[in-house]
Design a protein around this nucleic acid. Structure first.
Lengths: 181, 181
DNA sequence: TGAGATATGTCAACAACACTGACTTATATC
DNA sequence: GATATAAGTCAGTGTTGTTGACATATCTCA
């Protein structure tokens, strides 16, 4: 009831350079699906973060510090692509409230190596849980799709959208299909 | 040189519920790749928008109005998931500067139907071009990947990352693989 | 050892974009 | 004619990004 209404679902079957027009239309759909997928993807942790008085910026910092213990400030700045001042504001919150610790670098004592405390790891795990659930569910959805065929980017992004909202998104995108026909 | 360093590239081969641990790790990678992919994905249009004095919020409004002419305010609010006040701020800019027009609804005269002007369609096309280029390139990358195997979500998101940055992301993510080994 | 580069931290001001809450106007519906 | 709905607006606030300037500690190299 959902997939059939969406045009160009067979994107991944179109080889490289041929049929650029169709691939262009497929790309346009992916652009839109990426918006919807990301919208719902960040919505999950937002609800948890609000309980702690934190925002998405805190989440991003915590995420990368948990996953890559010993990260330096410079490395984190390069990953997040924000300014030192923006990073410092949220990092200060996380350190003061005991979620992240700094240790002076051993080989280079100018560096501040970042590590999570137990509290930080716990919070990060909470946040990761809801996001992992969504992604794992999206991957699992493939099984109920085209049988043994692998999941296309289109299918994955669609599956990342909140299930209750998926029909609405498909309905919206079907408006274009009708016009094109 | 890039792919081999990334762990769990065979995510899509793991059936539904079995090996949840591995799928969990795969999900974690996808979470991170989604961040990087989205970071670069929105970076492209940002540069164009800055020339017009517009931001991402303007882009989102313009995108949906171009793609779905006649959209109502209520529909747009439901899509974007922002407040009426937030929408109005950017919509006012776009209308005053001649990129979007409002027409009173015919069946319900309370509604304001949104349409793009030619200038709006031109700007939207400019913005779509850079994003379509990135997505089309990402889809095309599949051809040079696993031959006839379909593209996994992992491959797609990785291919969405700025090519020059891809190696750095892979290097970063390889740090985890080394620890796990 | 001393000059200059680098890593980090900080102050101040500002802009984009989201929020809440309260209220108005026009139109539709019953 | 009462009530609901679609849209617009005013005022205040918070998060997260920005620029620019500057301070401090440490490293590197001549």
């Amino acid at each position: 009831m959902t997939r059939q209404q969406v045009p160009a679902a067979e994107i991944a079957e179109i080889p490289g350079q041929e049929a650029l027009g169709v691939q262009g239309a497929a790309s346009d759909d992916l652009i839109e699906l990426l918006f919807f997928a990301y919208r719902d993807f960040v919505g999950d942790p937002d609800r948890i973060l609000a309980e702690y008085g934190f925002g998405r910026a805190h989440h991003r910092v915590l995420h990368f510090v948990v996953r890559y213990p010993g990260l330096t400030i410079a490395e984190l700045l390069d990953i997040l692509r924000i300014t030192k001042q923006s990073l410092n504001r949220v990092l200060k919150d996380l350190i003061e409230q005991g979620y992240i610790e700094q240790k002076t670098g051993t080989s280079d004592r100018r560096q501040r190596l970042l590590f999570c405390t137990n509290a930080g790891a716990d919070l990060a795990a909470d946040l990761t849980r809801v996001q992992t659930r969504r992604v794992a569910r999206a991957l699992a959805d493939r099984a109920e799709q085209a049988g043994t065929a692998a999941m296309s980017a289109h299918d994955f992004l669609l599956a990342m959208i909140e299930p209750d909202e998926r029909a609405a998104v498909c309905r919206l995108m079907a408006r274009r299909a009708r016009r094109a026909a």
